[in-house]
Amino acid sequence: MSNDLVQIGRRSFLKRASVAVAGVTGVMASLSPLKEVVGDIDIEAWLQQHYHELSPEQMKDVLARLEADAKRTYGVDVKVQDIKPRPDTKFAYALNLGVCVGCRKCAYACEKENNVSRSPGMQYIRVLEMDKGGVNLETANHQYDPETVPKPDKYYMPVQCHQCDNPSCVKACPVNATWKEPDGIVVVDYNWCIGCRYCEAACPYWARRFNFEKPILPKEEINTNTAYLSNRPRPQGVMEKCTFCLHRTREGRYPACLEVCPTGARVFGNLYDPKSEIRYVLENKRVFVLKEEVGTVPNFFYFFEA
């Protein structure tokens, strides 16, 4: 500038005021798209503390608020519970690749059970079509769609959250919005997640899903039996994942993906119970874990058995 030393006081009040008005108008106009979401702002929700900091009374209020939110958004009476882990329990899963036919019923049953957004690619379970003769994920087909499955030269490998003992996603989270519960389930506090998606990048099993937009949930298909840490309706902009259906499994029931499997390829249970089905598989079958070399120590096992 040639006039660095210009006297500041010369500017008229009018000129300054017009610049200020123009500036404020510009900023307001730029932010106008936020008008449509201003109504959703809930100061109580915004100030809500982390799951671990909530007292039982506060939790009660939170659950009531979430139920009211669901009622307002979907017009459905959703029951949201805070179901705590059971003592002496550690959940694990096994999947028999020898009998899985790749019908994807697990993926769709899970989507429905867990109120997952019907947006493409959100399902927690991804079934891979693999070439017989190896375990090469790089050539797995995700979008296979033949008339019937199984195809004779292929086998099928469903992948979901492995509920690792050394979860890289939990390590990644900058705000502790995801953690491992005492029963082994890696959960997300959807009211705490800031949506940075670092956990999604960290997961070697591609098991996490992000709500890129407001979840698409058909009202009539909403599962009204929900839990805070699992399948309650989620907001936009947060991460979610498979929780082994903790709202079912913590009450002793099987996960939805297991019950729907037409070939009985799925085995679930409590690792600490020597008489459990999962223990039978781990002790009597030769199981393997996917990507053992990444050191995440999964609680999800694969085996081959006719």
């Binding site: 915004w46 982390h50 390590k171 990644a172 989270c173 900058p174 705000v175 502790n176 919005a177 705490w192 997640c193 800031i194 949506g195 940075c196 998606r197 670092y198 992000f210 709500n211 890129f212 907001p235 936009q236 902009g237 947060v238 991460m239």
Partner: peptide
Amino acid sequence: FVTVDLGRPDRFWHMIPLIGKFNWPISMLS
């Protein structure tokens, strides 16, 4: 650039130590 990448920029305060929960030193992002 990091802020616009957040899904929930409104929850930025969760990252502030003491008020929020800052996963330091575990998370590389922290």
